[in-house]
């Protein structure tokens, strides 16, 4: 199981600004290890952000997204104290869900 995400959700005027740091190797499948063997591709493929049961962002990623990915976006309709949930799934089927409260 991957390490938890670090999520910051803050009110910026009437919008919620969401910043996420995920913990993932994001292996390209093109790198060789010290023994000369190709390290298999291992990367997050899909990301979904949910607020109050509504999807506020979806993303599809390839292996060119950097190790320990960063994501920032903003949406309307959230309030301080509510929750934003982030879910990612990688190419091996691993999945992680974390959430954070919106702060003012």
């Amino acid at each position: 199981m991957a390490d938890p995400m670090r999520i910051r959700a803050t009110m910026q005027g009437d919008k919620v600004l969401v910043r996420v740091l995920m913990s993932h190797e994001m292996e390209t499948g093109q790198r060789k290890d010290s023994a000369g063997n190709i390290v298999p591709a291992h990367f997050i493929q899909s990301v979904t952000a949910v607020h109050s049961g509504k999807t506020v962002l979806t993303a599809e990623w390839g292996p060119a997204v950097s190790k320990n990915p960063f994501l920032q976006f903003q949406f309307a309709g959230g309030k301080s104290g509510e929750t934003v949930q982030i879910i990612w799934t990688d190419n091996k089927g691993d999945k992680r869900t974390d959430e954070a409260k919106i702060s003012s």
Partner: peptide, 18 residues
């Protein structure tokens, strides 16, 4: 590298690292 979809209510702005 990446593709982001914005439902209604989400601003068309995004940051990532590649």
């Amino acid at each position: 590298a990446a593709k982001f979809d914005f439902p209604a209510g989400t601003d068309p702005t995004v940051s990532t690292r590649v």
